[in-house]
Structures are given as C-alpha cells and as structure tokens.
Design a protein around this nucleic acid. Structure first.
Lengths: 187, 187
DNA sequence: CGATTCCTTTGATAATTATCAAAATCGGTT
DNA sequence: AACCGATTTTGATAATTATCAAAGGAATCG
C-alpha cells in the first residue's frame, strides 16, 4: 500500500507511468522520535509526506526554538525556503514521535516534470494547496486572538497536546508558554 | 510593448503560441486612484500584473482596514484565497494611485493549461515565487521587530511613504499608526 | 519505591504596544 | 497668503503579554 501515491491520486489521478516515475524518486522510511530531517544552514533537497506520526518545522530566535509549522498524518512537510531556491534554510525539521514518512527527492524531480506534464500540474496544485494553508495561517494571526488560534489548532490536530510539548505549541501560536498555560487554565 | 508577457518570459521563455494564448485572456487597463478591483464577499476571478502604479490588498478587522499586501510595479496582485478556491474572498483590492495593469481572466485559464504544458509550468513557478514571498513575510514577523519590518519595506518600495498613507503601512507592519509614527520619529 | 529529571503551572513584576484625545503639519484651493 | 480638510505627530493612560523565579506534577529509571 503506497499511501503517498494514494494521496497524490486524490489531487490529480495519475497514469501508472507517472506514478511509478514519482515512486522511483521516493523512499519510505521509519523515523524515530527526535530524528532531524534538516538543520538550519543546510540545503533542503526533499519533501516528506507523513504516513504516520508528527513533525515540526522550527527556527531559532534569540537562541530559542520557535515552531513555524506542525505536520501530522497526510500532510507534507519541507523547508520550502530552501527547497525551491537551493539556498540554505533558516528552518529545522524534527520528528516528534516515531513516524513513517515518504521522502521525495526533489532534486531529481525535474526530468519527471519534463516527461510528465501531469506531474507539473500536480506540482502546481500541491504548491497551491500549501500556499492556501499558509494564507490561512496568516489570517489566523490577522483575525484571531491567541486563544482562538489555540482552539483552531485543536480542531486541526485534536490530540496535539498529548503529542507535542506545550512550549512548542505556544511558540507556534506566537505567545509564551506561560501565557498559553494561563489561557488553558481559564477554561 | 506587452510588459506582462515580458515579465512571464523572464520566468519561463514562452513559445509564440503560448504567449498569444495567454494574451487572449488578458486585458490592459488604466485604472484611477481608489478603483476597487475586488470587494470582500465577492469571488475573485482574475489576477493583475502591475505595469505602473500601486495597489493594496486589505481586509476589515473590527471595522478597521488592515493591509495584507502591497503590490507595485512588476508585481502580481490577487486574492488567492478566492482565486484558487472559488470561495468568496475576505480580501479587498484597491488601487492606490493612477495605474496601468494587465488583468488575466483566471477562470479562462484551464484550457490554456490543458493545451500548453509550458503554461502549467509557468503557473507552478509563479505560485512558487509568491509562496516564497509570503514565507518571507512570515519570517519578517517571526524574526524582526516592527522597526526592522518597516526598514525592510522601505528597501522593497523605497518611495512608499510618498505613495501610501501611514495608517495603511502601519497595519501592514502589524502595529498602530501612532506606534509607527513614533518609530519614525526616533530616527 | 524513591530519586531525578523534565515539563507545566502559578505569582509578581516589567516591558511593549494600543487607545484616545488633542495638537501640529501638510496639501491643495481660492 | 490664508483657509480647509485630511493626515500625522505627540502626550497620557490602559491593556496585553513577556519575563523571571519558584513551586507543583508527571514520567522515567535504577
């Protein structure tokens, strides 16, 4: 069972040939808690589809870790600032529990784009999808209080409190851990 | 002289046929100050390349206008939350000075994608480019103080102070107009 | 089971930024 | 040059949130 190809097929039904071209530059891996998929300063050359588990993207701000993104089952995670530019990334990617991921070697994708226009289309739609997610996140900061952002995150990943440390969630919400703790307290 | 096609050619060199297919769903327009290109609640069906002039994307928060984005010469502006989903947009788009824009009718682009894989590629690269811009903006909020964000904006659009009202800039930076005024004062 | 370590909560204080109101400045017009 | 309306600046106060320190809980390991 190839969950990654299944996921892609939901976005654009792929002919067998195109699917196997993608498959050839993808590997399924089991990763354990605390595995680092990318360190800041390195160039990101792959993106990862999470079959099972959870990951986070974070950066360092004044020596402290700040979460930029969480990705759980059926989501894609990468450091797009580097993946698309070839420049060193400011982001780190870390696995937060034992996970199974499909890693696509993006530096090998160009010939696949060239040979399979449908994959070019798929790529466009995938980026569009993720662009909209980022726009959603911007809107959350624009329109919602930290409390509302917290509730939204719970809707998105209901069991996140059991899976991720509070401080990591707080920095994702843009507030201090103490403040998040107080928000939770008054419920 | 078709500045829009020139711009696209810089991203992906287009064969004549593809360029003219794009040209057929694009119109050049002169727009005057205060023209509204989109009102929130409406569905956005086009995107605009700015040949000359400046526009802003904004939304209403507690009855007040908040700027989400500025776009000046050689930039593309749209309400992507609606353009890619067909849902009503939360955004408004307004022209801030007499401008010349090229408006592409996005609801007519599907056949162009189908007939011209190179345009599919172009679309992917355009979205990627704008995704990176949004990521940059997120990083500015993540890493920089309001003061640094202000300086960065000045680098990007040096004459913005002459072209745009202070309150509109302040809300783009995520601070009150008074606070921005004080930041400027202590220079 | 107890000890150790890590994580979360609570309390007190300080810093940042918003808000409201008023004054000053600017731009265009007569 | 004087005036008007719009915009920006300044001042005083209030609200929000961060920070630091300490205490309380939970999980892990011998």
């Amino acid at each position: 069972m190839n969950y990654f190809i299944d996921y892609l097929n939901q976005i654009v039904p792929l002919p067998e040939k195109s699917a196997s071209a993608i498959n050839e530059i993808t590997v399924r891996r089991k990763l354990s808690l605390h595995t680092s998929l990318l360190r800041n300063g390195d160039v990101c050359r792959e993106f990862h589809f999470i079959e099972k588990g959870i990951a986070r993207v974070f950066y360092y701000k004044d020596g402290k870790e700040v979460t930029a993104w969480f990705a759980a089952e059926n989501q894609i995670v990468s450091a797009i600032d580097s993946l698309f530019t070839g420049q060193p990334s400011l982001y780190n990617i870390e696995i937060l529990e034992d996970s199974t991921v499909w890693s696509l070697q993006y530096n090998k994708i160009e010939p696949v784009f060239q040979g399979h226009p449908i994959v070019e289309r798929l790529g466009r739609l995938l980026i569009t999808k993720n662009y909209l997610l980022l726009d959603e996140r911007m809107k959350l900061f624009a329109f919602c209080t930290a409390e509302e952002r917290y509730e939204r995150l719970l809707l998105q990943i209901p069991d996140i409190l059991q899976r991720v440390k509070l401080g990591q969630i707080a920095s994702y919400l843009g507030i201090s851990q103490e403040h998040l703790s107080r928000i939770r307290g008054r419920k």
